[in-house]
């Protein structure tokens, strides 16, 4: 865990939370997207983030992965503060995988090379070892026969599974998933959700932004509803979906039901 931070004065304040976010603020120009988000995620916990389009779910995940600089507040991962000076961002990112809505596979590389690039270049893993563990991971997610294919020869569901495997290949302790099924045809959604379920069963700590309410109900230990740049309400899915306390959550869920998405 000390690998997350270069400095010797690494803060241990947050104990053993996998993720701790305190009063996080983030603006794009005049537009404050996150205005005081606080969230704690325990190890092996699966959290789903729900909220209207534009509510800042992606921005929150990108901040945690340090892809976006934050304005104020703090983020602790595995007990180490990762916001502030002296943090080795590459080291942090190896511990926190992120998968995007749009796959973002490298189109000029085969599936195998997509998966082995980071282990080889970031973790300095020998090629044979990287390929062996990549092959294991690909096989585990039903992609063994796609090793030599280029991404544009794969279906969307296969591409997204490769993207998940690619993120897993650096052996992260936390996975951030940003609407990983939104770009998929309905019949391909299930295969990707199955992969995420398997990860949850294996004990992966996950923070998942999703529009799939049924899936959130099914897989999440806790669901967080995001609006106006804040987490308005968080509760176990059984509670949040059936008996939302906050009026904004109620309104959001009513709209989802009306749209036939739950």
């Amino acid at each position: 865990m000390s690998a997350l931070r270069a400095g010797p004065e690494a803060g241990q304040a947050a104990g053993t939370d996998a993720i701790r976010i305190e009063d996080l603020h983030k603006s794009f120009g005049p537009h404050e997207v996150l205005s005081g988000v606080s969230l704690t995620v325990a190890p092996h916990e699966v959290i789903c983030l729900i909220g209207a389009s534009g509510s800042g779910k992606s921005t929150l995940l990108r901040c945690i992965n340090l892809l976006e600089p934050i304005d104020s507040g703090g983020i602790w991962l595995l007990g180490q503060q990762v916001t502030g000076p002296g943090v080795d961002v590459n080291m942090v990112r190896r511990r926190v995988g992120i998968v995007f809505q749009s796959f973002n596979l490298f189109p000029h590389m085969t599936v195998l090379r997509n998966v082995t690039l980071a282990p080889m270049k970031a973790l300095r893993m020998p090629k044979a070892e990287a390929e062996a563990s990549a092959s294991d991971l690909l096989a585990r997610f039903g992609l063994a026969d796609k090793r030599a294919e280029y991404p544009d020869r794969l279906s969307g569901g296969q591409q997204q599974r490769v993207a998940i495997v690619r993120a897993l290949a650096v052996q992260p302790q936390i996975m951030l998933l940003d609407e990983v099924t939104s770009a998929l045809d309905p019949e391909l959604v299930a295969e990707v959700l199955d992969v995420i379920r398997e990860l949850a069963t294996a004990g992966m700590t996950m923070l998942i932004a999703t529009h799939e309410m049924g899936f959130a109900k099914d897989v999440a230990n806790r669901v967080c509803f995001l609006e106006d740049g804040q987490i308005v309400e968080q509760a176990p899915p059984a509670e949040l979906f059936t008996d939302p306390k906050d009026e904004r959550t109620q309104r959001f869920l009513r709209r989802i039901v009306q749209a036939g998405r739950m």
Binding site: L67, R93, R94, N104, A118, R166, A167
Partner: peptide, 13 residues
């Protein structure tokens, strides 16, 4: 740009 983000998110410099 998302290609760069994807690469950086894997911990590549």
């Amino acid at each position: 740009r998302s290609q760069l983000a994807a690469a950086r998110s894997l911990g590549l410099s």
